[in-house]
Design a protein around this nucleic acid. Structure first.
Length: 709
DNA sequence: GGTTGCTCATTAGC
DNA sequence: CGCTAATGAGCAAC
């Protein structure tokens, strides 16, 4: 791996001659098997099923399922059957402020359930309309007394399961005290991964890959939140990514687990990842650490190792001009403890790359890119490459290092190259083609939002005024108890038991330090005007405006749409829905049907459906309707999809007696740059004029309902 | 804000 | 089948 050399010598594209002390070409062979598919016919491993390149929005050929990323309607049945929401620690029946030690798994109880306090009648927080019913989502968590332990959280689906906390690794610190096992089992049941069979374990598809990645990241975020909320840093695992992956692996929840050459079913060129473990789980690149993945194949009589994939870990701004070429360094050569260097040996991955040069087989390439926000890395699947030449050179320490030149197989979808283009648009070294207005917000947002049309001659959408926030003519509701806010002068911190806002979110913060929604709650209490914390408090995420570089663009067949130049992580905040509040309580639906830019929270919405009782599921989730027609922000351009990559969440901000609800949009899964952002518009209930105003849905998903409102 | 140190999980290969 | 060596990311503390 190039990084193992402690040198960035290969990040300068064409070889930096000044650094190369002794370059001697080894060979540059014509491939032995010009037609790689024939050449590989003797490989002992079964060939992968043919790769089908499917755009995210379809259309989907038969056999290719789009990944419906959140929850299927049937899932809500689970919760309904139990007569209790399956909330897994974040659902509808929000635990009230939980003492930190409540996360401890009871050891003295035979069934693992601590004395569950009896439910007390909930009080309605907002006296705002019959639609609220008895739903938990309308309950002020401060008034709730259901103090579930984490065991309770999942026991609706795992009543008979083993209660003993598995002792894992060097556990024993307080960090292991909540029952991870139950948490995982809850997720697996919810996403129907309990009956995961060997076929799906071996052969992925879009749906399977998507579900596994979704579960991975939801679980990872949940574990991060739980560990962080304890406010203890010593003695606990600080790598929730590793822990999550290991949990899933142990349960056999993985796919494409047999190595193969070429594309991996269910993964598209351009897909992005944020952890090496994600690559591992979906079969894109098996080793958890090593940069070269290889397998032994039978060639005529004997076997030889061939490379199947590599992960390069360069920065994308110094990779040279040609984004279709990689100069990759071999692995090894460095003594880990003291960092001492030795010559690399032609073995393992290095040998496999060398052999792959001869055999000319496809090698998958995952580009590691430094994440601008945070210290992490983003992994972009850049499709398959072929190794064109190899050589050895000496590094600074005078040790031999193998170098491999990989060239991208032509005809694949744009992936890494788009990142470089975007970087150039941002730093001004290139102009985004088709730009009509560089910033349609006229400076209202802190980042410009370009208006782009590169498909036809339309010059822009109808006129509207750009506003960055929701405009209320009256508060969403009144709270009987004045809320004076929290006193976190330096911003709300996890594990601070004195933070009033944390208490209102069940004792934990809703957002991570990098602005990710920790869990799929159905309501977030953000800090309000009367809180003492600064504007950059992490509990004010949706108030801080758009932080990603968006553009409004003309779609091929769905009018204007929204997409991002920046990659968006699962759970990442995108924007709120700004506009004029049309309705906050029951009453006649105001001019909604002739407004293409309506946001209607009263609609049936499947992710929320999960945490609802089936009898109540048809009720309007939240009595809020917003029009973005005359005044609005980027959110008004987000199109509907039945397989969305974005969903919304109501966010409450309180000011003395007044409560204001805002609508915040978050990414469901990782969204690569330039992929259209869509959410499920939901279904209009008959009492709100459903069946009227149906529009033909063009989302192209095979889960498409055929229409939307 | 760069650097350093620590630890982790997976798998090839014995 | 069980064990071990090889591999580098991610995070936190400096």
């Amino acid at each position: 791996m190039e990084q193992g050399l402690g040198s960035d010598s290969n990040h300068h594209g064409p070889i930096d001659k000044s650094r190369v002390l002794d370059v001697k070409p080894l060979r540059c062979l014509v491939p032995v098997f010009p037609n790689s598919s024939q050449g590989m016919s003797s490989i002992s491993t079964p060939q992968p099923s043919p790769f089908v390149c499917v755009p995210p929005s379809g259309p989907f050929p038969s056999g290719v399922q789009p990944f419906y990323p959140f929850l299927s309607p049937n899932d809500s049945q689970n919760g309904a059957q139990q007569n209790q929401p399956a909330n897994f620690g974040f659902g509808g029946s929000i635990p009230a402020p939980v003492p930190l030690n409540s996360f401890r798994t009871p050891t003295s109880h035979a069934n693992g359930v601590t004395g569950r306090p009896k439910r007390v009648p909930k009080t309605r927080a907002f006296g705002s309309g019959s639609a609220a019913g008895d739903d938990d989502v309308y309950s002020d968590s401060q008034n709730q007394s259901d103090q579930y332990t984490s065991a309770d959280m999942a026991d609706t689906t795992n009543s008979g399961k083993q209660r003993g906390r598995p002792k894992r690794g060097r556990s024993g610190g307080p960090g292991e005290d909540f029952d991870v096992e139950l948490l995982v089992n809850g997720f697996l049941t919810l996403f129907k991964l309990k009956e995961f069979d060997d076929f799906r374990r071996t052969n992925g598809d879009k749906d399977t890959v998507g579900t596994i990645l979704l579960v991975f990241d939801m679980l990872r975020r949940r574990l991060t939140q739980l560990e962080e909320s304890k406010g203890v840093t010593a003695g606990i695992a600080r790598r929730p990514d590793l822990k999550t992956c290991n949990l899933l692996m142990t349960k056999g929840v993985r796919t494409n687990n047999t190595k193969r050459f070429g594309h991996v079913p269910g993964i598209e060129v351009g897909d992005i990842f944020f952890f090496r473990m994600e690559l591992c789980l979906v079969g894109l690149h098996a080793p958890s650490m090593a940069g070269i993945d290889y397998m032994s194949v039978k060639v005529t009589m004997d076997e030889e190792p061939l490379a199947v994939s590599i992960v390069s870990s360069g920065g994308y701004d110094d990779d040279g001009n040609d984004s279709d070429v990689i100069i990759y360094s071999g692995q090894g050569g460095v003594q880990r403890r003291d960092g001492q260097m030795f010559d690399q040996k032609l073995e393992r991955g290095n040998l496999a790359l060398e052999k792959s040069l001869h055999r000319a087989n496809d090698v998958r390439v995952v580009r590691g890119i430094k994440d601008i926000v945070g210290n992490g890395k983003i992994y972009v699947y850049d499709g398959v490459y072929k190794i064109q030449e190899s050589w050895a050179e000496k590094n600074k320490s005078g040790c031999n290092v193998f170098k491999y030149k990989l060239v991208r197989v032509p005809g694949q979808a744009e992936a890494f190259s788009i990142w470089k283009s975007i970087q150039q648009w941002k730093d001004g070294t290139a102009t985004r083609p088709g730009v009509i207005i560089p910033d349609l917000t006229s400076g209202v947002e802190s980042l410009p939002v370009a208006l782009v049309n590169d498909v036809d001659g339309e010059k822009g959408p109808a006129h509207f005024t750009y506003v960055s926030a929701l405009r209320y003519s009256q508060p969403f509701s009144n709270n009987n108890k004045p809320f004076s806010g929290c006193h976190c002068l330096g911003g709300c911190q996890p594990g601070d038991t004195n933070c009033l806002c944390s208490h209102r979110n069940d004792g934990v913060l809703s957002y991570s330090s990098v602005g990710l929604l920790y869990t799929s709650k159905n309501l977030v209490h953000e800090c309000g005007p009367t809180c003492s914390c600064p504007p950059n408090c992490r509990n004010r995420l949706s108030q801080s405006g758009v932080k990603i570089r968006l553009e409004v663009f003309k779609t091929k067949n769905r009018g204007w749409g929204l997409r991002s130049w920046d990659p968006i992580r699962a759970g990442g905040f995108i924007c709120e829905f700004a506009g004029d509040v049309v309705k906050v309580t029951d009453g006649d639906f105001v001019n909604a049907n002739d407004d293409d830019y309506i946001f209607d929270a009263t609609r049936y919405y499947e992710p929320l459906e999960l945490v609802r009782d089936s009898n109540k599921s048809k009720k309007a989730p939240f009595p809020l309707v917003v029009s973005g027609k005359n005044n609005g922000n980027v959110a008004r351009f987000m199109n509907h999809s039945c397989s969305p990559n974005v969903y919304w969440l109501p966010v409450l901000r309180e000011s003395n007696n007044d409560v204001f609800m805002h609508i915040a949009f978050f990414a469901i899964r990782h969204v690569p740059p330039m992929q259209e952002l869509t959410y499920d518009y939901g279904i209009v209930m008959p009492e709100n004029g459903g069946d009227g105003g149906k529009k033909k849905c063009l989302c192209g998903s095979d889960k498409c309902r055929g229409y939307y409102y």
